[in-house]
């Protein structure tokens, strides 16, 4: 019994994806951007699990993919926050607009 059609999941996922992209594009603080990116990855995972459940439930690959995505996201967040902290130590800011040392 599938009381919820697949397209509902995909719509929710598309919404989460768009909100995440918006967050990444519109936030000026690096941590805010990072949070937007986490939303994008969650949207991806909803897609993967929904497709697994509805289209290929007998092959566990979709869930494997989702778990790998979660793990990699954790590694990525750890490194990203380390970079942000390192930058904060030196510059007392994490606002991306303030970073203007690199230019011609």
């Amino acid at each position: 019994m599938m009381p919820i059609p697949l397209s509902w999941w995909l719509t929710v996922s598309a919404a989460l994806f768009s909100i995440g992209v918006y967050g990444a594009l519109s936030r000026k603080n690096a941590i805010g951007i990072l949070m937007g990116i986490e939303l994008v990855l969650n949207a991806v995972n909803i897609n993967l699990v929904a497709f697994w459940r509805y289209i290929a439930p007998t092959d566990i690959s979709g869930q494997v993919f989702a778990i790998i995505v979660i793990t990699v996201a954790a590694a990525e967040a750890a490194v990203g926050l380390a970079i942000i902290i390192a930058l904060y130590r030196r510059r007392q800011t994490a606002v991306v607009d303030d970073l203007d040392l690199l230019k011609n």
Binding site: L10, V40, L87
Partner: peptide, 27 residues
Amino acid sequence: IEAALKYFLYGALASGVMLYGFSLLYG
């Protein structure tokens, strides 16, 4: 470190977008 942060933010977003494409392809 500034370069690392910029690279990270662009890169993480790009891979998120790419991954969304992967998930649609999987679907």
